[in-house]
Simulated assay, not measured.
Amino acid sequence: MALKSLKKKRRIQIVALAAVALVISTGLIGYAMRDGINFFRSPSQVTDAPPAPNEVFRIGGLVEEGSLERGQGMQIRFRVTDGGASVPVVYSGVLPDLFEENQGMVGTGSFVNGTFEATEILAKHDETYMPKEVVDALKEQGVYQEPGS
């Protein structure tokens, strides 16, 4: 009888220890991923509810025609639009080869003092591809055109 209760007690301890380990590992994974999860926002969402300056997120839309300016060094300024609103973007670095006005783009960075400060810029990589989030944002504003039309 004493042996049975000892085994039962040991089994409960192992199950409890496993549950605690699972909770701790889940918490550590979530903590480690918090910086790797970047939410997508359209220019309209950014202007309607500006995110905090320390929040890293992705913005996407079309590069507004006539807005591309090359500054000193490698600094580039342009505006990204979804047809409903446009947001000024500043980026220091080399732009993708396919980056041009009236083309789709996605940028990663933060919104500081009314300007999106990009740390990474991606351009659509062929005539038919555009990220789903960008297409959805453009459709919402009624400015998306199917490729080839």
Rank of each mutant, 00 (worst) to 15 (best):
residue 1 M to H: 13
residue 3 L to Q: 12
residue 6 L to E: 12
residue 8 K to T: 08
residue 10 R to W: 06
residue 10 R to S: 08
residue 10 R to D: 10
residue 11 R to F: 05
residue 12 I to H: 07
residue 12 I to Q: 13
residue 13 Q to P: 03
residue 15 V to L: 15
residue 17 L to E: 13
residue 18 A to L: 15
residue 19 A to L: 15
residue 19 A to G: 14
residue 21 A to V: 14
residue 24 I to E: 09
residue 24 I to C: 12
residue 26 T to K: 01
residue 26 T to D: 01
residue 26 T to I: 08
residue 27 G to W: 09
residue 28 L to N: 06
residue 29 I to S: 06
residue 30 G to S: 13
residue 33 M to W: 12
residue 33 M to P: 03
residue 34 R to P: 03
residue 34 R to D: 06
residue 35 D to E: 13
residue 36 G to P: 00
residue 38 N to E: 14
residue 39 F to D: 10
residue 39 F to M: 10
residue 40 F to Q: 04
residue 40 F to Y: 15
residue 40 F to E: 04
residue 42 S to W: 01
residue 42 S to T: 06
residue 44 S to A: 15
residue 45 Q to G: 07
residue 47 T to Y: 00
residue 47 T to K: 12
residue 48 D to L: 10
residue 49 A to H: 11
residue 49 A to I: 03
residue 54 N to C: 00
residue 56 V to I: 13
residue 58 R to W: 01
residue 59 I to G: 03
residue 59 I to E: 03
residue 60 G to Y: 01
residue 61 G to R: 00
residue 62 L to C: 03
residue 63 V to A: 08
residue 63 V to Q: 04
residue 64 E to W: 00
residue 65 E to T: 14
residue 65 E to G: 08
residue 66 G to H: 06
residue 66 G to T: 07
residue 68 L to H: 11
residue 70 R to F: 14
residue 71 G to D: 10
residue 71 G to C: 07
residue 73 G to N: 12
residue 73 G to C: 10
residue 73 G to P: 06
residue 74 M to K: 13
residue 75 Q to S: 13
residue 75 Q to E: 15
residue 76 I to E: 10
residue 76 I to S: 15
residue 77 R to A: 13
residue 77 R to V: 05
residue 77 R to C: 06
residue 80 V to G: 01
residue 80 V to Y: 02
residue 81 T to Q: 03
residue 82 D to S: 09
residue 83 G to K: 05
residue 84 G to Y: 04
residue 85 A to Q: 13
residue 86 S to C: 06
residue 87 V to F: 04
residue 87 V to Q: 01
residue 89 V to I: 14
residue 90 V to K: 11
residue 91 Y to F: 15
residue 91 Y to S: 05
residue 91 Y to I: 04
residue 93 G to E: 07
residue 95 L to V: 14
residue 96 P to L: 12
residue 96 P to Q: 12
residue 97 D to M: 09
residue 99 F to K: 05
residue 99 F to W: 06
residue 101 E to L: 08
residue 101 E to K: 07
residue 104 G to N: 08
residue 104 G to W: 05
residue 105 M to W: 06
residue 105 M to Q: 08
residue 105 M to H: 05
residue 107 G to N: 04
residue 107 G to V: 10
residue 109 G to F: 02
residue 111 F to E: 03
residue 111 F to V: 08
residue 112 V to Y: 07
residue 112 V to W: 01
residue 112 V to T: 13
residue 113 N to A: 14
residue 114 G to S: 11
residue 115 T to R: 10
residue 115 T to K: 09
residue 116 F to K: 02
residue 118 A to V: 07
residue 118 A to D: 08
residue 118 A to K: 02
residue 119 T to A: 09
residue 120 E to N: 12
residue 121 I to G: 04
residue 122 L to N: 11
residue 122 L to M: 14
residue 126 D to F: 06
residue 126 D to W: 09
residue 127 E to V: 07
residue 127 E to M: 09
residue 128 T to H: 10
residue 129 Y to D: 07
residue 130 M to G: 00
residue 131 P to V: 02
residue 131 P to A: 14
residue 131 P to Q: 12
residue 132 K to I: 08
residue 132 K to D: 14
residue 133 E to Y: 00
residue 133 E to H: 04
residue 133 E to R: 02
residue 134 V to N: 01
residue 135 V to L: 03
residue 137 A to N: 02
residue 137 A to E: 00
residue 137 A to P: 01
residue 137 A to I: 02
residue 139 K to V: 09
residue 140 E to R: 09
residue 143 V to T: 06
residue 143 V to K: 00
residue 145 Q to V: 07
residue 146 E to A: 04
residue 147 P to E: 03
residue 147 P to F: 00
residue 148 G to Q: 02
residue 148 G to A: 00
residue 149 S to M: 02
